Amino acid sequence: MDFASKIRLIKDFPRPGINFRDITTLLQDGPAFGQVVNALADLCREMKPDIIACPEARGFVLGAPLAYVLGKGLVLMRKPGKLPGKTIACQYQLEYGTDALEVHEGAIRPGQRVLLVDDILATGGTMAAAAKLIQQCGGQVAGIAFLLELEGLKGIEKLGNHQVVTLIKCEA
């Protein structure tokens, strides 16, 4: 299936000059969504993850069904203040400031192999922070999976030596 044809392009969103890739049109197509999850599972099985982790919010949309198909647990990575209880955080740089991701303390066990999943690889900042957070917790990044990579933004360069898989590659 041509997954790229299921993703809507919205020009000048959220501001002029940005070409936004809207995956909601793919998600609304049940058979296509199922094929995306199965295709990602096929690419990720060889990474032998112990658990799946994904940043909010659209990472949840792909990470949860992928964890189900692979028979693995799911760790949610949230913005500060969204998780109850004790958390571990990793700050990262944005174009205009900083942000952070948090996980529950103990959600990632030392030595655990973690597959990181998100919808789109753009600048790579969020997923680089997610990988650092896994390492802060004592886990190992087994690999990183995306539905779509915006190649012109070179976000993959921020992900170092991690194994990265994507289903779709296109220009930003």
Rank of each mutant, 00 (worst) to 15 (best):
P14G: 07
L26E: 12
D29Q: 15
L62R: 02
G139V: 09
G111Q: 07
Q135P: 00
K48Q: 12
Q163G: 03
K6S: 11
A41V: 00
C137G: 03
V114G: 04
N19Q: 12
A100C: 08
G59V: 02
Q136Y: 12
V141D: 13
G63Q: 05
P14F: 06
P31K: 07
H104V: 00
Q112C: 05
D119V: 15
P31H: 06
L148M: 14
P65H: 04
V69I: 14
G30M: 14
L153A: 12
L62F: 15
L101Y: 05
R15E: 13
R45C: 00
F20E: 10
Y96S: 08
C54H: 14
A32F: 05
Y68I: 09
R78Y: 02
L83F: 11
A53S: 10
A53Y: 03
L62T: 05
L74T: 01
V117W: 09
A57C: 13
N38P: 01
L43M: 13
R45G: 03
P55L: 05
E171K: 15
K82P: 03
V75S: 00
T98P: 02
E171P: 10
G71H: 07
D12S: 06
F146K: 12
Q35C: 00
G139Q: 07
M1N: 00
A142D: 03
R109A: 15
G160D: 06
I23W: 05
A89V: 05
F146N: 14
D29V: 09
I51A: 10
G97Y: 02
R113T: 01
Y92D: 11
Q93T: 11
E46A: 06
Y68W: 07
R113N: 06
R109Y: 03
I52E: 00
D119Q: 14
T126M: 13
L66W: 08
G34C: 01
L76G: 00
R58I: 10
K132P: 01
P14M: 07
K154A: 15
L26M: 14
G152N: 13
A122Q: 12
L40K: 01
L133H: 11
C90Q: 15
P31Q: 08
A131K: 03
F60N: 09
F3V: 04
C137D: 08
P84M: 09
Y92H: 06
Q28Y: 10
P31I: 07
R109Q: 15
K154T: 03
